[in-house]
Every structure is written in structure tokens, then in C-alpha cells.
Design a protein around this nucleic acid. Structure first.
Length: 497
RNA sequence: GCGAAUGUAGCUCAGAUGGUAGAGCGCCAGCUUCCCAAGCUGGAUGUCGCGGGUUCGAAUCCCGUCAUUCGCUCCA
């Protein structure tokens, strides 16, 4: 994994955000190659989900939505669980999941939370629970960790309103003061969406009325979402700002289970089609206890990332979740707004609230998985008969950032001019290409290998005579000669455009 | 946010006991080179994460802070 991180930075895939200012926790920027990779993934997803089928339409909705959307969806309550720190063993846990013990009971625990150490005694306070790890009742205050990013809309800074109310606040006790502060903040509070899905539910009726769709049909959206994650880790795997590729598929109740199966399989095979190793992919069904409150069933598509854990092994990480969200969301929004979000089938004269099957993928995670999977080091013979390591990113041509590189074998005899002519042809088609005349030819090939460029075209002395060039394959390093004027067609064919 | 470790050139890292910073690779220019990180010559690059303190003097010692990695937790 360190090698991948290093390569990402060296070649311009991923940089740390605001790096010259010392970086910002778990924020990353995509460099010139990274943005191409991620964009290719998103475009392929969009193409496969929206353009290549006639039952799914697209949507691009605002990141900041009406705050009540999040009340209805349950995020405003469910995303803020009171957490408590144990003063004995330093464990942090959720107050609602701690073992209950009656207030006033005297309990025993070990110093530092270890099995050895002197026995200590303590009395459970009025909260009525103890540390789930060491059983200690000496705990910090319950603190809210809001997992949504809150900001305010409107020109008046809520801090100003708080300042104006300072006198009133000073007279209140802590509980009353927090309540009053919440009231003030709530007047202008809005949230950065923690998922794109709610945009599809909120626009369900708009799309139904404007797009001549009928169940089963889907709404797809690609966009940024934000969550204050407690812990972040492993490069772009878990970040506070991330990009989702989500699709909500609305079906008739009773048909939901078959569509759930359909999307599980369809989405898994999508990753395989784009080149992820099948043996590093798995579909993991959630246990009943794992399911979110709104889900009837859920399965994760997981990839075996090379994150090194204690045993030096990799780790399964979620790329995408496929959930049967039932009619939970539409019902909730219907309840909060009083709007009818049911569908009337004119053929069967039936009215129902559709069930929703949701394949929700992380674009950043997909990009990371493709990057990890493409990474390869192989021993190759050198020109001098020795051996060395060749680093190569074996991207599927469809997601490779640069599709083709063009080189003059040497920088004279008209070769640079010929190369430039080929470049002009490629540039005019929009195929992402790259020109390089610096240094030895071998070095240029290897540079492209590290960037994952699937093909290199080289102009040599024979080109000057008969207008053919060599095309070199990234994975096999084999070359063949092709006519110069057929370059664009051959490239289009090979990269699948 | 808690515990532990780390932070020196683009990358990987060296810099015992404090005396104003080094290597390899990469990068740039030129020459050479008809095909896989080749060769030769020359070149550029470091607020030693940031801020403060101790000291005649700090990359080195102390404090704080930011970030990264590994555990706890959560999830796409």
C-alpha cells in the first residue's frame, strides 16, 4: 500500500488537500491523472446506468437541501449518537449501547481496565450504565457528535444572534442554555447532504410527472456527500467529503426481492467487467442485526484492499452497498410534507407506494480499488541482460487516465514532426494522449507504464520511409506495426470508444 | 476524540553524544542512442511539518500544534 500511495503522489494521482498548509485531516485532491481515472469511472457508471438502458433517468440535485429533509430521513436524529469516554480505560462508546446497571449500585472493576491490577470500586451514577469494556462507572459527560456538516443559510451570522441573546442565555442553566442555542441555530441551519439518495426521493414526484416513467424505473445521481466521520483512514477510503454514485430503483411491492437480486448481480459484474480481480471481490450479505432501520435487506460489494493490518494482511472494504430500502423513505417524506408520493398504475388500476432498491457506490473507493488492483510489479530483463522491477498500472483501457502516448524514437530526422502530426490527429478526436520526446525510449515506456497508459506509439526511421508506426502494448510490451493514417481508428477500437 | 508510533530534497531514506544538511533514485538541459528506467556532461531543488522555549549555537533537547500510520468507533 505504501508503494501505491507513493506512486499516487509521484505521478499525480492523489495529493493531500491543502498540503502546503500542512494538510487537512482526511482530505485529498485528485491530480491530473487521478481526476481522469475518477472521471472515467463516473462516466462509465453513468453510461451503463443511464444511457445504455431505458428504465433509468438522471438527476443532479443541490447539496444543501431543506433541513426537514434530514428530519424525515432520520439523519438529523440517527446521525448524532451521544458518546461517552471511560475515565478508567479510555474506551469511547455509545451511551445507548452500554450495559445497564441500576443507579446507586456499587460495582468493581480493575485499574486501567486490565485483568490484572488492583481492584477498584465505584458507584453507578444516575445515568444507570457502566463502561462496556472494563465495567467502570467513572465516565465523562455524554457528548453529541453530529455526523452531518452544519452550516447556515442567509446573510445574518447566527453568532450575531447568539451574541444578542447573551443576556438571556446567562440566566439559564446548562440544559436550558443548550436548548436556547439550538433554537437560535436552527433558524438558519442547513446541512451538507450525508447521502445523495434523499434528492432522488424528494424529486420522485417531479420525475414521475415530467418524464413519462413508470415502475420499475430508476433515478441515478453522481455527486459529493459529506459526513463527519469519527475516524478516517487509508488514503481516500474514508474521508469526510466523498463522491457517491447512487441509483434508486422504484419497483412494485412484491417485486422488490427479484430486483434486489438483479441489482446485486448486475453491480458485482460491473466491477468485474472493468477489470477488478474476481478473487478480490465478494458480495457480503448483511446480518439481520447489521441492517439499518430502513432496510429490509442489504449486501455489500467488497474489495480486498492491500491495507496492511497487524498481521500484514489486506482488508475487505466496502465499495458499494445494495439495499432494499422498502417504501420507508417515500412514506417518510409523504408523512412530513403531506404530499401523495404513491404511484397509480392505469393498467391494473392499482395505487401503491413503490419499494426502492438502492445500489449506492463510492466513486472515490472505486477509484482506489481500481488503482490498487491495477498496481503490479514484475521482474523484467534489462537491455544489458540483468533484471529489474517494472512498475505498471494495468488499468482497463476504458478507465486508464491517458489512452495513448506518442514518441519519436530519437529527436531528429523528422521524427518529432511525424509524431506531432499523429498527436494532432489524436487531439482532434478527444482521445486523451500524451507526447514525450525526453530521454531514452525505454525510460519513456516505463513512465507510461507507471501512469497506466495502455498503448505507446513510436515513430522510427521506418516511419519516414513508409508511414507506419509501432504500437506497443503496456501489458505484454510487444510491438506491432500499424499504418500511421489508421492510428485514430485503431485506437478507438482498442480503447472501446 | 483517546492510546501508540512517525514527520529531513519530487520519492525512499542517512544525519551517536546539540556546532548553521547528505546519499540513491527521479527531475531539467545538452550530447549520444533505431526500441524497454542504457551512457556521458552540466544543472536545479530543502521555511529539516508548523509555532514557541532552553542554549553562544537546535534537524538534534523541552512544550504546544498540525498531519500521517496502527488500534477503538462508524460507514459509501
Amino acid at each position: 500500500m505504501e508503494k501505491i500511495v507513493s506512486l499516487c503522489k509521484r505521478r499525480g494521482f492523489i495529493f493531500q488537500s491543502s498540503e502546503i498548509y500542512g494538510g487537512l485531516k482526511a482530505s485529498y485532491d485528485y491530480g491530473p491523472l487521478g481526476v481522469e481515472l475518477k472521471k472515467n469511472i463516473k462516466e462509465t457508471w453513468w453510461s451503463d446506468m443511464v444511457h445504455c438502458r431505458n428504465d433509468i433517468v438522471g438527476l443532479d440535485c443541490s447539496i444543501v437541501m431543506h433541513p426537514d429533509v434530514w428530519k424525515a430521513s432520520g439523519h438529523l436524529a440517527g446521525f448524532s449518537d451521544p458518546l461517552v469516554d471511560c475515565k478508567n480505560c479510555k474506551e469511547r462508546f455509545r451511551a445507548d449501547q452500554a450495559p445497564r446497571t441500576e443507579a446507586g449500585t456499587e460495582v468493581e472493576f480493575r485499574e486501567g481496565g486490565k485483568s490484572s491490577g488492583s481492584k477498584l470500586k465505584g458507584v453507578v451514577d444516575k445515568r444507570g450504565y457502566v463502561c462496556p469494556v472494563c465495567g467502570c462507572p467513572d465516565l465523562s459527560a455524554e457528548r453529541q457528535f453530529n455526523l452531518m456538516f452544519r452550516t447556515s443559510i442567509g446573510p445574518v451570522d447566527p453568532l450575531q444572534e447568539i451574541a444578542d441573546a447573551a443576556g438571556e442565555l446567562a440566566d439559564l442553566d446548562m440544559k436550558g442554555r443548550m436548548k436556547k442555542l439550538h433554537e437560535i441555530v436552527a433558524r438558519s441551519a442547513v446541512y451538507l447532504r450525508p447521502e445523495t439518495a434523499q434528492g432522488m426521493f424528494v424529486n420522485f414526484k417531479n420525475i414521475l410527472d415530467s418524464s413519462r416513467v413508470k415502475p420499475p424505473f430508476g433515478i441515478a445521481q453522481v455527486g459529493k456527500s459529506y459526513r463527519n466521520e469519527i475516524t478516517t483512514s487509508n488514503l481516500t477510503f474514508r474521508t469526510c467529503e466523498f463522491e457517491q454514485m447512487e441509483m434508486e430503483y422504484f419497483v412494485k411491492p412484491g417485486e422488490d426481492e427479484q430486483w434486489y437480486d438483479y441489482w446485486r448481480n448486475t453491480r458485482l459484474s460491473w466491477y468485474v467487467k472493468l477489470g477488478l480481480s474476481q478473487d478480490k471481490l465478494r458480495l457480503r450479505d448483511h446480518k439481520q442485526s447489521e441492517l439499518a432501520h430502513y432496510a429490509k435487506a442489504c449486501a455489500d460489494i467488497e474489495y480486498y484492499f492491500p491495507f496492511e493490518n497487524q498481521d500484514g494482511e489486506g482488508e475487505w472494504g466496502e465499495l458499494e452497498g445494495i439495499a432494499n430500502r422498502t417504501d420507508y423513505d417515500l412514506k417518510k417524506h409523504s408523512g412530513f410534507t403531506g404530499k401523495d408520493l404513491s404511484y397509480f398504475d392505469p393498467e391494473t388500476k392499482e395505487r401503491y407506494i413503490p419499494y426502492v432498491i438502492e445500489p449506492a457506490a463510492g466513486a472515490d473507493r472505486a477509484a482506489l480499488a481500481f488503482l490498487c488492483d491495477a498496481f503490479d510489479e514484475e521482474i523484467v530483463p534489462t537491455a544489458k541482460g540483468g533484471e529489474e522491477v517494472r512498475t505498471v498500472l494495468r488499468f482497463h483501457p476504458k478507465i486508464a487516465p491517458v489512452k495513448v502516448a506518442v514518441f519519436p524514437l530519437v529527436k531528429r530526422d523528422g521524427m518529432p514532426e511525424k509524431s506531432q502530426a499523429i498527436m494532432d490527429d489524436l487531439l482532434s478526436t478527444g482521445i486523451n494522449c500524451f507526447y514525450d520526446h525526453g530521454g531514452a525510449i525505454g525510460r519513456r515506456y516505463r513512465r507510461q507504464d507507471e501512469a497506466g497508459t495502455p498503448y505507446c506509439l513510436t515513430v522510427d526511421s521506418q516511419t519516414i520511409e513508409d508511414d507506419t508506426v509501432t504500437i506497443r502494448d503496456r501489458d505484454t510490451m510487444q510491438q506491432e506495426r500499424i499504418p500511421m493514417n489508421g492510428v485514430v481508428e485503431i485506437m478507438k477500437k482498442r480503447i472501446g470508444n
